[in-house]
Design a protein around this nucleic acid. Structure first.
Lengths: 102, 102
DNA sequence: ATCGTACTACGACATTCATCAAAGTACGAC
DNA sequence: GTCGTACTTTGATGAATGTCGTAGTACGAT
């Protein structure tokens, strides 16, 4: 757990990376959950049906793309949506994705 | 060239498929070009730097995801953005993607 | 210090996928 | 019909990726 937790700055976020990060069912589910919990949550609590190591991979993908921000808290990692950055860069994108009924 | 050119109906379009279709640099470029040409264009004319068979693959991916509509015209295929359907299903998504500066 | 919990790192594996080349099909022009 | 153009199909290939298990690290509680 020694890792740095690097996050891209706002101007480093690329639309292609964001779209790729969102284009996975598990990650989409994570994003949907984070959209409901503004304050952020530990993704390990979500009923996603994948192992812990797979979840780590997905959260890292979202973090490195600039979709979520992750902060350590005790033995947990609290993830939250970078809504402000995403809305500023790609206005409407996140709302459009979240509006999807399926 | 006997192919059916099947398109998903609006209610068959899935957000995961759309995001996957958009999450490729070449396909993003196609979508950007189509956004400028409301009437539709032959994608073969775009300077995309890929072979014809690769282009066929990308246009099919976009078509099957419901992002573009393709109609035969002579020996060409005219592609156009399904903006109405996408805006209805995922309001803001397309505009957000197109607003991206990089 | 020991234990349990939460997460990460490293491999391994199977699948998906972007890409191309070669051969084939459809259409228009001549 | 013949030719050329535009696109598709098939097969191959290498890279990326989602998944897991195992082992390891960090932190809190006892």
């Amino acid at each position: 757990m020694t890792t740095m937790l690097a996050h891209p700055t706002r101007d480093e976020i690329r639309i292609a990376s964001v779209l790729h990060a969102l284009a996975d069912p598990v990650r989409l589910e994570i994003v949907r959950a984070l959209a409901v919990h503004e304050e952020g949550i530990s993704c390990g609590l979500l009923p996603l049906g994948v192992t812990a190591s797979t979840l780590t991979h997905h959260v890292r993908t979202l973090r490195e793309a600039g979709v979520v921000r992750v902060r350590p808290q005790g033995t947990s990692r609290i993830s939250s949506l970078r809504r402000d950055d995403l809305d500023a860069l790609f206005p409407g994108l996140l709302d459009g994705v979240l509006a999807a009924r399926r």
